[in-house]
Design a protein around this nucleic acid. Structure first.
Lengths: 351, 351
DNA sequence: CATTCACCTGACAACGTTGTCCAGGCTCTA
DNA sequence: TAGAGCCTGGACAACGTTGTCAGGTGAATG
C-alpha cells in the first residue's frame, strides 16, 4: 500500500468548492477577531445605529487587519435588491452608444446603482441571451437597445418585476416604456433641407430594414420627397448592413446610374463616414446630409441631423428609476427632438 | 376599535423584505409544480446527467409555465465564482476606451464570462470606489485603466485571489500584470518624423503629469529632440487637462510666443482634436502629429501614431484569463508597438 | 430465485449576509 | 432599593442555490 491516509476524507463533513474567493474572511471571522457577535459586525459594516464607539472601533480594526470586504452576493440574496441595472446595446465601440452608455452610468451612479452593459453586436439571439443573463443576475432594471424585433421573451421577467425601458428603438410585440429620437422628423427635415437647396434626385442609404430607426428615416425621406411632389426612383434607395463595402457599392451605383443623384441622405453615423470617404474620391461635388453627429464633422463641413445620445440615455435611465421608485403608469413613449446642423455639405447646390 | 385583525402579525414567523424580486418562483416552486425533488430541478437547470427524459420534460414544463429563471446571486454564493470580470476605465464615451472595452468583452464572452465596466472619470477616488465595489461583487478578475497613481488599496483584494491586470497605464506602487502601448517609442518616432521633415521648433501638448502615458510621451519627445541635438524651450511644452479651452490656450501661446513653433506633437486623441480645430483657424500652415488614431483622420489628412486599443484590451483580457486559469508567474509587462501613419499633416514643411 | 449493480432521485447542509427577537446591563425615578 | 425603561449585543432563521450522500427501483447476472 502506498502511504498513510493523506486525504482525510471525513464523510460526515461535506466539503465545499476547492477555493472560495481565495478564502476571504467573512463577517464571522471579523466577529471572532474583534470578540463580538456576528450581527454587531453587520451593524458596523452597514453603519446601523446601536453600537458603542468603542465596539465599533474594535470591529473596524478587525476589518482592516483581515482585509475583510462584504460579500455582495450574499447581501443581494438576503435583501432581494441588487442595486444594479443592465444595459443591452449594440456596440460599445460605436461612439454613439458609448456616449449613451456613459449617460446612463451617470444617472445610475446618482442612484447608488451599478451599471452592467453588454453588446449584442446587432444579433437578436445575442441580445436575448444577454438580457436574460442580466435578469438571472437579478438586475433591478433593464435598458435595452433592441437588435431584434420580438421581445416577448422578456414578458416573464417584466411580470416578475424587472423594470424595463427601451431606448433608441421601440420594443417588438410588447408594450413598454420607450425613449426614441424623432427619426422620422429628423430625416424629413434633412431631406427637405436638400430639396430647399435645389436638389431633385436625392439618394438614401440606410441600415437594415429590420431596424426600426432605419425604416422611420426612410419614411421621413419618402415623405419629404412626396411633400414636394418629387418621385423616388428605386435605384436611389438602399437599405442593408452598414458594412463599408456595401455602403460604398450602393453609393457608387447611385452616382453612376441612369439617373445619378446630386445629393445623398445617410441613415446613420457609420453610413455617413463611408459616404464621406466615397464622395471625397469623386470629381463631382455631391451634397450630403447625415443622421447622427460625428466627431470632427465640423472640420469636414458635414451637415448633419444631430441627435443627443447622452440625452437619450439620461432620459431612459430616469424613466427606469421612476419605475423603480414605484411609479405606476401606462407605458410612456418619449421622442426627443433632433437638430439640423448646417456645415456645408448639405448646402452644396446640384451639379 | 377599528376593525378585525387585518394584519396577521405572526411573531413566530420572521418576515423577509416586502417584495423579493417581485416574488419570483424558485427551484422549490418548480419542484413542487413538477412533483419532483429540489435537486432534480437543479440538475435539469444545469444540464447535469442522470435525469430521465420524462422527468426532465416535466421539469421543463414547470419552468416554462412559472417563468422560472435561476437566481445567479444564490448560485454565486454557493459556487464561489461569479463568472464575471470588472473593467475600470476612464470614460466609456471616449472611442479609444469604447473599443478597448469592446475587445475585453469579446474575450470575456468567449470564456463564458460577463463584463461589468465603470468609468472613473479620471478621478482616483472614483476609480478606487468603483474597483472596490466590483471586488465586493466578487468579480473573478479585474482590469484597471488607472486614474490614480497608488493602487495599494487593491493589495488585500489581490491577495484574496482577485486576478488583476492593468492596461494602458501601469499600476502605482504595486507589482502587477501590465499591458501598455509603447508611448515613449511612439512619441519619439513621431517627433523624429517631424524633425526629419525639417522642423526645429516643435511643441508638445500632453495630458496631466499624473498620467503615466503623458509623462512617457513627453520623455519620447524630449529624447527625439535630444537625439538631434535640438534644445527645447519651456514655452513649447504644455502638460495639463485635455479640456479644449486649456489645449486651445496652450496651442495659441506656442504659435504666437517669441519662438513660435512650426510643428506640434499632440499627446492623445482629445488633444489632437482640439489642436486640429485651432490650426484650421490659422493662416500659417503648422505641422501636426498626434498620438492615437481618430475616426476620419484619413480624410482630414492627420498624421498619427496609432495604437491599437482593441489589441490592448484583448491582450489584457487574455492575460487575465491566463491568471484565472491558474497560471502562476511573475507579473508580466507587455508593451505593444505603435505605428506611424503619415497622412499629410506630419509632412508639412516648416514655414 | 437471490444478488449485484447501475442508475435515478431526493433529503440535507452549507455558502455569507441581514431581519427578528430576546437577554442582560445600565440608568433613572419613585 | 426596587421597578421601569432604554440601550447594546448576540442567537437564530432565512434568502435560493449546489455538493454530498443515501435510499430506492429495475435490470442483469450467477
Amino acid at each position: 500500500m502506498a502511504d498513510t491516509d493523506r486525504s482525510p476524507f471525513t464523510p460526515g463533513r461535506p466539503r465545499g468548492p476547492e477555493l472560495r474567493y481565495g478564502n476571504r474572511p467573512t463577517m464571522k471571522d471579523v466577529a471572532a477577531r474583534a470578540g463580538v457577535g456576528l450581527k454587531t459586525v453587520s451593524r458596523v459594516v452597514n453603519s446601523e445605529p446601536g453600537v458603542t464607539p468603542d465596539t465599533e472601533r474594535r470591529v473596524q480594526e478587525a476589518i482592516e487587519s483581515l482585509g475583510f470586504r462584504r460579500n455582495d452576493s450574499a447581501r443581494v440574496l438576503r435583501k432581494g435588491r441588487t442595486a444594479s441595472i443592465g444595459l443591452v446595446l449594440e456596440d460599445l465601440a460605436d461612439p454613439f452608444y458609448g456616449a449613451l452608455s456613459r449617460a446612463v452610468e451617470e444617472v445610475a451612479r446618482a442612484h447608488g446603482t451599478l451599471l452592467i452593459n453588454g453588446s449584442s453586436a446587432e444579433d437578436p439571439d445575442r441580445e436575448q441571451e444577454l438580457a436574460l443573463a442580466l435578469c438571472a443576475r437579478r438586475v433591478d432594471g433593464l435598458i435595452v437597445i433592441p437588435a431584434g424585433d420580438d421581445h416577448r421573451y422578456l414578458e416573464p421577467e417584466i411580470r416578475a418585476g424587472i423594470a424595463t425601458v427601451f431606448v433608441d428603438r421601440p420594443a417588438g410585440r410588447i408594450d413598454a416604456d420607450t425613449v426614441l429620437s424623432d427619426s422620422f422628423g429628423g430625416a424629413r427635415a434633412g431631406v427637405a433641407h436638400l430639396i430647399a437647396h435645389g436638389h431633385r434626385r436625392i439618394g438614401f442609404i440606410g441600415d437594415r430594414p429590420r431596424i426600426h430607426t432605419a425604416v422611420e428615416r426612410l419614411r421621413g425621406y419618402r415623405t419629404a420627397m412626396a411633400d414636394e411632389g418629387l418621385a423616388v426612383s428605386d435605384s436611389w434607395v438602399s437599405l442593408g448592413t452598414t458594412a463599408p463595402e456595401r455602403v460604398r457599392a450602393a453609393m457608387l451605383e447611385m452616382l453612376t446610374g441612369p439617373e445619378p443623384v446630386t445629393a445623398v441622405f445617410a441613415g446613420n453615423n457609420r453610413v455617413t463616414v463611408t459616404v464621406v470617404r466615397v464622395l471625397a474620391e469623386q470629381p463631382r461635388r455631391v451634397a450630403l446630409v447625415g443622421f447622427d453627429d460625428i466627431e470632427l464633422a465640423d472640420l469636414l463641413g458635414i451637415t448633419v441631423i444631430a441627435q443627443d445620445s447622452a440625452a437619450l440615455g439620461r432620459t431612459a435611465a430616469e424613466q427606469l428609476f421612476r419605475r423603480l421608485d414605484g411609479v405606476e403608469e401606462k407605458p410612456v413613449r418619449v421622442a426627443l427632438r433632433t437638430m439640423l446642423i448646417p456645415r456645408g455639405s448639405g448646402e452644396i447646390p446640384p451639379s
